[in-house]
């Protein structure tokens, strides 16, 4: 019998598709950590999320209601799953579901389910709508922006910036637009997909660098690793990336975490201009899909988050490997239709 801590971890984000959720990468990090003996419970929204069927990822998966169903129906489902699985730690991995999970955090705590998520205040401070104000308040560089609620407001908003400008959806997606016509087209497309408002933002020319970071909720940065995308899909997602050595970006991540007392994982999306000025483009309130690169580089952020959730005090990581590269790939799994039917019919496998 091993002396390792035996824990049950439930998590979402098993959609390892072309625009992937981080769940599979988070599981890989946790499973790589030799300090735990884990049972992984997947929480999925769709029956075809690849992580449900991948070998060695989840031990069991349950379907959960979409975020639009509200926190009460989510709680009911989690109570059922917890009764069967006795979850020790729960890690939500999607932006759109986080609000419901944060709302449920006190209930989950009563159920003895540990989480390590940002607070509502932290979550809202970095929201696209509030990012400009947040950055200005904390002296971070940020592109100017305007929030618009109708296409008629576009010309006035666009007049504040030179073309090109960026039209961004409420949750995801963005389009670089060279003319008002392109901006109007992007507005309609993004409104149809993500709803209102739409954000019109100044275009910043530079190199996009992302930083995966983990805050302990007391202002300390446990880990921060900058990555440059080497290959980008048509959805703007990294298909390959490399870790960088940049003390300025790590200091920026530390400043962000100190300013917010950030609790949990996050991803800073930065645009670094050719003269070296880093602009905040977005802050994602969860680990990125490329989080396994932090494990490869020597700072296992998913495992560190589990330890923080369980109440351990952690010392910040101090070193990591520069030049570590990830290359994503796609893989056709073969499963029997019965597996899919079973999951679709019963909501668990």
């Amino acid at each position: 019998m091993s002396g390792k801590k035996r824990i049950t971890i439930a998590l979402t984000g098993l959609n390892a598709v072309d625009s992937p959720g981080p769940g599979v990468a988070v599981v890989r990090g946790i499973r790589d950590c030799k300090d735990f003996d884990v049972r992984i419970i997947g929480l999925s929204y769709e029956s075809l999320e690849p992580g449900i069927y991948m070998e060695g990822i989840t031990d069991k998966t349950y379907q959960i209601p979409y975020p639009s169903a509200g926190s009460e129906s989510l709680l009911t489902r989690l109570e059922y799953i917890h009764e069967k699985e006795h979850i020790d730690v729960l890690i939500p991995n999607f932006d759109a579901e986080l609000y419901n999970f944060i709302k449920l955090a006190p209930k989950l705590k009563e159920m003895n389910i540990h989480t390590f998520m940002p607070t509502i205040e932290q979550f809202e401070a970095r929201d696209k709508i509030n990012l400009f104000t947040f950055c200005k308040k904390n002296n971070f560089l940020v592109p100017r922006d305007r929030t618009v609620y109708s296409v008629a407001e576009l010309p006035a908003a666009a007049a504040h910036f030179n073309y090109p400008l960026v039209v961004k959806g409420k949750y995801y997606d963005a389009a670089v637009c060279q003319t008002l016509e392109q901006a109007q087209k992007a507005f309609h497309k993004l409104e149809a997909k993500w709803g209102l408002p739409i954000i019109v933002q100044e275009f910043i020319l530079g190199t996009e660098i992302n930083v995966a970071a983990l805050g302990d909720g007391k202002g300390n940065t446990i880990s921060a690793i900058p990555m440059r995308k080497l290959f980008i899909t048509d959805k703007g997602k990294a298909w390959a990336g490399v870790t960088l050595e940049d003390s300025k970006l790590i200091k920026l991540a530390r400043d962000f975490i100190k300013a917010t007392n950030w609790r949990g994982g996050c991803e800073l999306e930065l645009m670094v201009t050719n003269d070296g000025r880093p602009y905040f483009m977005e802050v994602n309130p969860r680990f990125p899909a490329w989080i396994y690169l932090t494990v490869g580089a020597g700072q296992n952020q998913p495992a560190a988050l589990v330890k923080l959730a369980l109440g351990e005090e952690l010392e910040p990581f101090t070193t990591y490997a520069v030049g570590k590269t990830f290359i994503r790939y796609s893989w056709d799994m073969i499963i029997d239709i019965e597996q899919f039917q079973h999951f679709s019919a019963f909501g668990e496998n």
Binding site: T207, I209, R228, L230, G241, L244, E245, D246, V272, G323
Partner: peptide, 18 residues
């Protein structure tokens, strides 16, 4: 000083990933 150069002439700038 931090530019990595391999014997085969491959250069890697660890600051920006070029």
């Amino acid at each position: 000083s931090n530019i990595a150069v391999s014997e085969s002439g491959y250069l890697f700038n660890p600051t920006n990933g070029d």
